[in-house]
Nucleic acid binder design. Sequence first.
DNA 1: CGTAAATATTTACACTCATCTATGTCTAAG
DNA 2: CTTAGACATAGATGAGTGTAAATATTTACG
Lengths: 116, 116
Amino acid sequence: MNLELTPVQTVACCSPLSREPLSATEAEGIAPLLKALADPVRLRLMSLVASHEGGEACVCDLNGAFDLSQPTISHHLKVLHAAGLLEREKRGVWVYYRARTDALANLATLIGGHSK
Amino acid sequence: MNLELTPVQTVACCSPLSREPLSATEAEGIAPLLKALADPVRLRLMSLVASHEGGEACVCDLNGAFDLSQPTISHHLKVLHAAGLLEREKRGVWVYYRARTDALANLATLIGGHSK
DNA sequence: CGTAAATATTTACACTCATCTATGTCTAAG
DNA sequence: CTTAGACATAGATGAGTGTAAATATTTACG
């Protein structure tokens, strides 16, 4: 039912914001990625995972950092995963999330346009 | 009525996502900036303004690029301005918007963390 | 002053979203 | 098989958001 390619692929295919105008389809591909990051809880989740030892963290590590219910954290992780910003891997009873640093780097290049 | 500091100032004061965990207050300061960008129309608006000749564009230049009513474009510009991503300057009958490239650069550094 | 043009504000509404509670699924251990 | 723990899903609710229509504000020019 979904005809879109993953946001991660989308963000890698266009020049920085200030170089040339974004097309409508490009913008519609990138916006979901930013929308996934545009939440305080998800920002902290990304930061926690990305800065965690080994570049990964299990949900049990993350739940404690927030004053939110476990399903809420699970929901936010799902959003970040759906956007392609987090990778999931189940090991035994635990689920580990790893940050997609390439996606973050591409996004940063698109926004800041520091080089290419 | 608003007791918060501008998001532009907020984003400049913390290390990249993958260096150390974001605090709750930091995340709440940065999220509005991303939320302002997390819309296809606003992304294109930022791109149009930033890539326009002279780094600025008047609303009359922007309205035509979209299939939306003028008040809607005005609304989106207001959101970007409130977030500190656009500067406003009225010259005669026209209003010119200029992209806050420093804010974009800071945001990119925070997300991508390419250096410091 | 009066009119026209450029842009902003207000109001209203449909839609999305963040969160909770309750429940389900999977894995490991007795 | 049963029980417990880790994580996900489902459904509900209240708050927020994108859009349009109508209206207001500002500026330029006769």
